[in-house]
Design a protein around this nucleic acid. Structure first.
Lengths: 230, 230
DNA sequence: CAGTCGGGGATTTGATCATATTCTGAGGCC
DNA sequence: GGCCTCAGAATATGATCAAATCCCCGACTG
């Protein structure tokens, strides 16, 4: 219960020292992004206060922030929940990502350094390991990291933020989709993408990224149009 | 149950009914959007508490939300200010808006009803009046409303939100730019846009919207590259 | 001797919490 | 079946604590 010790001792490695609402935000964001909270599931302030062991003010701020990012939804009366995707929303997301992701990949191909390529390769091999072992959470995480690294290389913070925000919208449903389809059935376009980046083929990188994205998103779309309960 | 008092809080005195943080958010958002708070200007919680006559919690939440929307910036140590645009950021915004706005205009042209056209014409004439009178604030406001109405007609909430978010980024600098250039020098592409929508020329609407947007944004870009202090 | 740099306290500001108040939803009673 | 009451949750306030900035003063240097 004595969490007040975090201010006096500024040690204990990373994470210590920054404000609680930031930590709560990051934590809650990952819970949503990787589907720990299912689409449609309700979120209460006091529930999170006990779940994350935090005060009420930081939790409130984190929730507000995630609402404004589309990761949570304000249900008219004072209820908050993880939004359910509709086919229309998925169509919008696919449309936006076609443009965003391919452009970011194109920029990344123009700018990537050998170090960047090494980092990408490292993430991709971790991703492969997760696929082999069927580790759902690690798969989602590494996949997200891979795209995030592309965004970082692309050096376009505003566009990257737009792309990251879309992840928050389809992340929960992606988890459900992968959970049903399995991690095996995802032919990996990342290798082709990295090859294009390595050879400086920007157009090819854009195309590979677009295909990688479409592959996953069309599965989500199909699941929503069929199952109707994500 | 049916709270129609969504946002038009002009009735019943103090606009009671919806939560305070929502009111504060809307108010602060407009202050930023129309440049009442200049780019680079610092924003303090307690300053806003007195300025808007509100408690500290709602103000905090509004600020957090606007930070996450890019309308405010977190300056390392706990300072918050309206961000200064850089040429690189403007280039990103122009790039994104080229795609977003033209696509939204295209969708709007495919969906607009006669009622929608009437509403657009009404906003546009208010905009013309503001230009004639040289009313800066009204000009910015009606211009924003015009685009917002297009977004609404387009019926693509996620894309519209992305576009609205960009307004928060360039709004303050737009105000500075118009303040220098004047409202007169903006040849109005809105008429052409509405004509295209009326005749169902979706491609033409997209083109007109793109040109309208470019006109304004290139002025902003030029101002930033020249003046360096917006 | 004057100007500047650095230190230390006062003040402002942000972060968090505990608590009071209000609103929503549900279940019981008439 | 409708109204009323009650419990639980969210909103909002103010107080409190910590930290960063600011300002003033003194010492050192040119």
């Amino acid at each position: 219960m004595n969490d007040l010790a975090q201010k006096s001792g500024a040690q204990s490695g990373a994470g210590a020292g920054l404000p609680a609402h930031q930590l709560i935000y990051t934590e809650l964001r990952e819970l949503i992004l990787f589907g720990e909270i299912a689409p449609g599931e309700a979120v209460t302030i006091q529930g999170l206060c006990t779940r994350l062991g935090a005060g009420m003010t930081p939790v409130r701020e984190a929730i507000r922030r995630l609402i404004s990012e589309g990761a949570l939804e304000f249900q008219g009366n004072r209820r908050v929940c993880v939004p359910l995707l509709t086919p229309a929303k998925v169509a919008e997301i696919i449309f936006a990502r076609q443009w965003l992701e391919s452009h970011l990949a194109l920029r990344a191909a123009e700018r990537a350094t050998p170090d960047d390529l090494r980092a990408l390769a490292q993430i991709d091999s971790a991703l492969d390991r997760a696929i082999d072992r069927g580790e759902l959470h690690a798969y989602l995480q590494q996949n997200y990291l891979f795209h995030g690294k592309i965004y970082q290389i692309a050096d376009a913070p505003i566009l990257a933020e737009m792309a990251e925000r879309l992840w928050l919208r389809f992340g929960p449903s992606l988890r459900v989709m992968i959970g049903r389809v399995g991690t095996q059935n995802q032919p990996d376009k990342h290798r082709a993408l990295m090859d294009c980046i390595r050879t400086g083929d920007a157009e090819g990188a854009a195309r590979a990224m677009r295909e990688d994205m479409l592959q996953g998103m069309e599965h989500v779309r199909a699941m929503l149009e069929r199952g109707a309960e994500p």
